[in-house]
Amino acid sequence: MSDELRSILLEQVEKLLADRAGPDVLRRAEAGEWPEALWAEMEALGLPLALAPEEMGGAGLTWEDAVAVWQVLGRHGAPVPLAESMAAAGLLAAAGIGPPPGYLGLVVAGEPGLSWGRRAQHLVAAHGGKLVLCPAAKAQEGRDGFSRLPLDVCQPGPDSAAAPLPPALGAEAPLLAGAMIQAALIAGALEAVLDTAVDYANTRKQFGRPIGGFQAVQQLLAQAAGEVAAAGVAAAQAGRAASRRGLAAAEFEVASAKVVAGEAAGKVAAIVHQVHAAIGFTDEHHLHLFTRRLWAWRDACGTERVWAQRIGAAALARGGAALWPDLTARDEAAV
């Protein structure tokens, strides 16, 4: 997608979420109320299928485009599982299976459940070298301990379609897509909490002036801004690598994005809470709607530790002489 088209799309998504998402919707979602109006508008915009090519009812988005959309979604707290549904549709299309409409649950091996699994019409999973589409049967309802959003275990129905996983996706495609989603959502939510903290620091007065005028507070928020920028770049880089080389060959960038975004989530959440002090510790203030999601997302689809071990072990096996050449060759080989 051209830069111009992408920015139009991102503006549309931003506007939709600004109008229809917000703290009230997030709170109701945590109480188990599906944001029907928001989801309906997303379907009307063609977002859930957007990663599929036009002939399969999609918009031909790339992973890079999708990461940009997910970052906007994260900025608004991701009240609906749009990212997961988009990725599931994208995987199906890449395997040659036409994605059906409705919420497609992305099954990531080892994860405790599916976000809003009770609402999933179909499930997409990888096993035995194949990508499988099946109807979602009964869901065992649960909720995530951090985000409080529905996290359900779904029974798969009989396969509706199955196709070999193409090499570009690889056997771990759902896990890689899931990790990329979490990184992008984190990058977006980090922007939101940084904005919130800057606004608060500029309005909250102590000692006769806004606390944002104190260097101690400025230094903290500047440090947070560095982490926020790093997470955004890491997520975008993962999306670009997946677009160019396929998900399987983007493992290093996806892992890096999950590590960098996960580390940033922990550091920035600590800083924005420190800046907000007691009011940010209350249920009433909306800060926790975002910081609890940050803590949830950094745990999902592989923690920083898991992904760091993976790329670290690979680098150790390659040895010191290959370290710098490998780091610089990844992009250049693909251009």
Binding site: Q237, S256, V259, A308, G312, L316, G320, L327
Partner: peptide, 23 residues
């Protein structure tokens, strides 16, 4: 790096350093 192959805790640490270097 070559010396760290013998160190069990190295993979995670090296991975974190590499993730940041790339970013």
């Amino acid at each position: 790096l070559d010396d760290l192959r013998a160190e069990p805790a190295a993979a995670e640490t090296v991975g974190r350093l590499l993730a940041r270097a790339g970013t």
